[in-house]
Simulated scan of single mutants.
Amino acid sequence: MQIEINATKRELQGTSASRRLRRASRVPGILYGGTAQPQSIEFDHNELFQHLRKEAFYSSVLTMNVDGAKEMCLLRDVQRHAYKPLILHVDFQRIDATHAIHQKVPLHFVNADIAPGVKLSGGMVQHVMTEVDVKCLPKDLPTFIEVDLKDLVGGASIHVTQLTMPAGVTPVLHRGEDPVVAAVVVRGGGAAAEELEAAPVETQVITEKKPVEKTEKK
């Protein structure tokens, strides 16, 4: 999916400058990474807000148009107001088409209603993970990965290594790791219930350590 977002270079920095931008319906941000220096940028709030309502915006290679100069990048961090529908700051990372990237991709679960564990055993599907970390070239990055539950029986589970990955895409796993993605839990527990209890709770946060050059956050 091709997604382009417009930005302009931001000369004034600091807390006061960021506040003035927000009052003018602008959002401060930064574009970093690659061989170029980090660039302070700003966005139209409404345009950015509409982009952020789309799931694909978080897991796609984006085209950043900064005053007419286009670069490929990934969204790395979003800061929102605690209770107002306002975007406070965004971070984007430049990427190179020839180098592999790491990115979290959302999981789309299908056929839960016809899974034997649900239809025949009265079980319930529990989603342990909602996204998976993958490695691939930018051109191969999928907007989502489908998880087909049609063969899942009661008490069974699906692990990351059992997912069908698109060509050129591999899951990022630590040595010996193969976490549970989803399971059908039936009354009385069983192996799937034990796996779910042992599985770590996943938090959906887009985050990456900020570059040291970035010092002007709000």
Rank of each mutant, 00 (worst) to 15 (best):
M1V: 13
I5M: 10
R10G: 08
E11M: 13
E11H: 08
A17C: 13
L21R: 03
R22H: 10
R23C: 11
V27C: 05
V27K: 00
P28I: 00
G29M: 12
I30Q: 02
L31V: 04
Y32E: 01
Y32I: 14
Y32Q: 08
G33L: 02
T35N: 15
A36I: 11
Q37Y: 05
Q39M: 11
F43A: 03
D44H: 11
N46Y: 08
L48P: 00
Q50T: 10
Q50I: 10
H51D: 14
H51W: 15
L52K: 00
L52H: 03
E55P: 00
A56Q: 11
F57S: 01
Y58C: 05
L62M: 03
L62G: 01
M64S: 01
M64R: 07
V66Y: 02
G68S: 04
A69S: 15
K70R: 09
K70E: 12
E71W: 15
C73E: 03
L74R: 00
L75Q: 02
L75F: 08
R76G: 01
D77T: 14
V78I: 11
H81Q: 07
A82P: 01
Y83P: 09
Y83Q: 07
Y83K: 02
Y83N: 04
P85E: 08
I87Y: 01
L88C: 13
H89S: 05
D91Q: 09
Q93A: 12
R94P: 03
D96L: 02
D96P: 07
A97D: 14
T98M: 13
H99E: 15
A100R: 11
A100V: 15
H102Y: 06
Q103S: 15
K104W: 04
F109H: 11
A112K: 06
V118L: 01
V118F: 00
K119H: 10
K119F: 14
L120K: 15
L120N: 08
S121E: 14
Q126S: 14
Q126T: 14
Q126K: 11
H127G: 08
M129R: 10
T130G: 11
T130M: 03
T130I: 06
V134A: 12
C136F: 14
D140N: 04
L141Y: 05
L141K: 05
P142M: 08
T143R: 13
E146S: 12
E146W: 13
V147D: 10
V147Q: 07
L149E: 04
L152H: 03
A156R: 00
V160E: 00
T161L: 15
L163T: 12
L163W: 02
M165R: 12
P166N: 06
A167I: 09
P171Y: 13
L173T: 09
H174W: 09
H174G: 06
G176W: 14
G176E: 07
E177G: 05
P179I: 05
V180M: 12
V180G: 07
V181W: 02
A183P: 01
V186S: 09
G188C: 04
G188Y: 04
G189M: 07
G189V: 10
A191Y: 15
A192L: 01
A192F: 01
A193P: 06
E195A: 11
L196G: 14
L196D: 02
A198I: 14
E202H: 10
I206G: 12
T207K: 15
T207N: 07
E208N: 13
K210Y: 03
K210S: 09
K214H: 14
